[in-house]
Design a protein around this nucleic acid. Structure first.
Lengths: 166, 166
DNA sequence: CGATTGGTTCTCTTGTTGCAGAACCAGAAG
DNA sequence: CTTCTGGTTCTGCAACAAGAGAACCAATCG
């Protein structure tokens, strides 16, 4: 594997940080970065390990996690015991939209809070209602938009694999 | 302060957990829950402390954080040294949309990854482009939806205060 | 002045996270 | 069989986060 430029390494780190802040552990975030940026889109366990200076255990654990959540997959090659890991793109949109909408989980709880209230606090209840209305609106908008996207962008149904998020 | 029902306490905890999972510390999440659920929408430092069984330090720190991010504010009353904390709703939508769109920060990095690539990896680049396209589309959708909401739902411009997220 | 109230900040404890290192395991090769 | 290769699992440690308790500070009251 040709070694990476300074710029590429930096980009990988920034992708790592971004995932970090979404609650994904650093090593996994960097692996995603590497697989996105690498000139070779299929890397072996050891190539990843060396490129990112990770221990075998950290690498193995992170890779397993990424496969579990569908962000990464691997292929094998005949007569070769190594695994070739790569970023998975399949079904990425669906997963993204789902996580995106999960963000609106608060709406349910706000609704509970609202109808658990009795008389009084009219202003407060109005604000709550407004929040709930807005969340509902956004949620519906996203759902509609997603369907629209799906219908206009048929997946290029090539060697589709299986996967999820960035 | 009238004490809370079992149901209310439970709802507060669930609101707490939800915030927890969004990276907000437990004590702060529960305070938000309490302020949303409480029959009295304005609570003093000590009422919060006692209702949630928090130490003064934990309470103080969490409240400060919540004020910093604009989710909570306080009022005072003439001839009373206490602070009356309450949930802030002002500008909540804007903050929510902003955080929501920050989620798309990955798009910038994906674009960098894409145009940092040279020849080859055509399939991979196509997938990347598709991701970027989708993120752009969603982002624009949300922005448009937000503007639409704004124009149809003028804020009730009452005693507006200052604030942000749930 | 000293005592009380309302809240803040400092220090220490506990629990959790993220990872390295080493032991481990399965399949292939000799 | 032994040895090597590719990867997984276990153990232990360092760094960090969350919060309790106590010391502290400022304003008010007597």
């Amino acid at each position: 594997m040709q070694s990476l430029t300074e710029e590429q390494r930096d980009l990988i780190e920034r992708i790592g940080v971004l995932h970090d802040r979404m609650g994904i552990r650093p090593a996994a975030g960097r692996i995603l970065g590497l697989l996105l940026v690498s000139p070779d889109p299929e890397l072996t366990f050891d190539q990843i390990r060396l490129a990112l200076d990770l221990s075998k255990s950290a690498n193995s654990t992170a890779l397993r996690y990424l496969q579990d959540v569908g962000s990464v997959e691997y292929r094998t090659r005949p007569g070769d015991r190594k695994r070739y890991f790569r970023k998975s793109f399949t079904d990425w949109e669906a997963g993204f939209v789902q996580r995106s909408r999960a963000y609106y989980g608060i709406r349910t709880l706000l609704a509970e809070a609202l109808d658990q209230k009795g008389e009084g606090q009219e202003e407060f209840k109005a604000s709550l209602e407004r929040m709930i209305g807005f969340l509902t609106f956004l949620d519906e908008t996203i759902e509609t938009a997603y369907q629209q996207w799906q219908s206009t962008h048929q997946p290029p149904d090539g060697d589709a694999t299986a996967g999820n998020a960035p």
